[in-house]
């Protein structure tokens, strides 16, 4: 556990000594503000909720999270520091979790900085703060799932660009599998159980249900298992790469 924290701390310092963390946080705040107010017309809606804010998150994360995660392991491989890290008395698992947590914390921080929205909506009306809280948790979990996928793709290559693109494509699949325009298309020729089965793999399905204000254990389990699976695969890739 101590090792995980030491690695996470170093990683965090790395994010803040380069512009990555600042750029991510600023762009995330700007874009989410733009979409909420300009595209979804937060004020004109006259509704006391943050749906117009959260609805964009799957799409915002699609590009922003891989941008944070793409260098996680590819940089270690490119610079050769992976050799340093993994010959220290730490297990690969500790390194993987430590690095993942640091990046997740950056995203969590960005999310936390959207608090003025919560204040605004509470000032203007009487929103259901339970729903808002659940949505924040859901958003954080979704970001974690994307991030774990980025961790996995960054372990595959020493090239950050490749890592970014593969990670975007995989995440896009997780969105589209449950995105209404796609599922509607599927319904016309596939069996309903098949469509549901595919949609169950999608972050959309689970994020939507959390946004309704219910933290269902199935949805939590979904996000946690995407993270668990991706990070486990990361460890397999790293081991395979070392074994040659």
């Amino acid at each position: 556990m101590k090792e995980i924290l030491i690695i996470a701390k170093r990683e965090l310092r790395g994010y803040f000594s380069s512009p990555v963390a600042f750029v991510f946080i600023v762009i995330f705040l700007l874009l989410s503000g733009f979409f909420t107010f300009m595209m979804a017309n937060f004020f004109e809606r006259g509704e006391a909720n943050l749906q117009s804010f959260f609805m964009w998150h799957p799409w915002l994360y699609l590009f922003l999270v891989p941008a944070v995660g793409m260098r996680m392991w590819s940089d270690e491989r490119r610079l050769g520091t992976i050799e340093l890290l993994l010959t220290m008395p730490v297990t690969p698992w500790q390194a993987i979790v430590g690095k993942f947590l640091a990046s997740w914390l950056i995203i969590g921080l960005a999310l936390l900085l959207t608090f003025p929205l919560v204040i605004t909506v509470n000032y203007l009306g009487n929103p259901d703060n339970g729903v808002i809280f659940a949505s924040y948790i859901g958003s954080l979990l979704m970001a974690g799932a994307y991030l774990a996928i980025s961790a996995m793709t960054s372990a595959m290559t020493r090239n950050q660009v490749v890592s970014f693109i593969v990670s975007v494509v995989l995440s896009l699949f997780l969105i589209l599998a449950g995105w209404p325009p796609v599922t509607n298309l599927l319904v016309s020729w596939a069996q309903p159980w098949l469509v549901d089965g595919i949609a169950a793999f999608s972050v959309m399905t689970h994020f939507d249900s959390i946004q309704k204000g219910v933290l269902d254990s199935r949805d939590l389990l979904y996000f946690l298992s995407v993270m668990g699976f991706s990070l486990f695969t990361t460890s397999v890739i790293i081991r395979a790469h070392r074994a040659g």
């Binding site: 170093r10 310092r13 790395g14 000594s17 610079l79 050769g80 520091t81 050799e83 340093l84 010959t87």
Partner: peptide, 11 residues
């Protein structure tokens, strides 16, 4: 000390 002496450049 690995070959080429890698280190975290940003630190």
């Amino acid at each position: 000390l690995p070959e080429n002496a890698p280190s975290y450049a940003d630190m």
